[in-house]
């Protein structure tokens, strides 16, 4: 027999399935929802359903969007000649926060990871290649994660795209701002040295 009443127990079980939520956190959230006003609970359930009903992938860039094409692809003020390729939609948010990039995006929804059985076929590359055929794109910035999978994806993309005459660049890798050189590991330091620029 469950310690909690049926509906409460079911809510805790559902919350526990969310990433980063364990038994204790699930109980705390469930009790909060139970104590909250009915309107608050309705707003929450409505918001969850709306995400499921209205969010889809942009046909051009694969970003999560309510409208198709997404707000980035349909914005005429953005630079149509530069596309930044990222692994996940969260990465778009990270780059947008800089307020320095004004080009377009392309989301791969993953990176090459042979150990997980993810090869080129599993990445959303087809519509990227179609976008490049238009001839208006001059540069692709590969902003995949600076790890083994991200690096392999970047190299694979450059080999695929360069023959089309499009410039392919990779985001810099190296020492994080605010840290100190003495704590940098050898791989990071090596990448920082390789990616040095003239000032």
């Amino acid at each position: 027999m469950s310690v909690f009443a049926g509906p409460l127990s079911r809510l805790i079980d559902e919350l526990k399935r969310l990433p980063g939520i364990g038994q204790k956190s699930a109980q705390r959230i469930a009790f909060h929802i139970e104590r909250a006003a009915r309107e608050d609970a309705e707003r929450l359930s409505q918001a969850i359903l709306e995400v499921k009903d209205k969010i889809r992938l942009c046909n051009l860039c694969n970003n999560l969007t309510e409208q198709d094409p997404c707000e980035y692809c349909s914005d005429p003020t953005r630079d149509q000649s530069v596309i930044c390729v990222v692994e996940t939609p969260y990465n778009v948010v990270g780059i947008e926060r800089t307020r320095e990039f004004h080009g377009l995006y392309h989301v791969l929804h993953g990176a090459l990871s042979p150990l997980q059985g993810i090869g080129p076929e599993q990445l959303r590359l087809k519509n990227l290649m179609e976008r490049l055929k238009s001839g208006s794109v001059k540069e692709i910035i590969v902003a995949t994660n600076p790890n083994v999978e991200g690096e392999a994806t970047a190299i694979y993309l450059s080999k695929l795209i360069k023959p089309l005459g499009v410039k392919v660049s990779r985001i810099a890798m190296g020492i994080p701002v605010g840290s100190e050189l003495e704590f940098a590991d050898e791989v990071t330091m090596l990448k920082a040295m390789e990616g040095r620029r003239e000032i």
Binding site: P146, N147, P176, D185, V187, T188
Partner: peptide, 14 residues
């Protein structure tokens, strides 16, 4: 974390 003390040392096949 971006400022992890492990840096690239825990990448596969290191």
């Amino acid at each position: 974390r971006p400022k992890s003390r492990y840096g690239g040392m825990l990448e596969p096949l290191t």
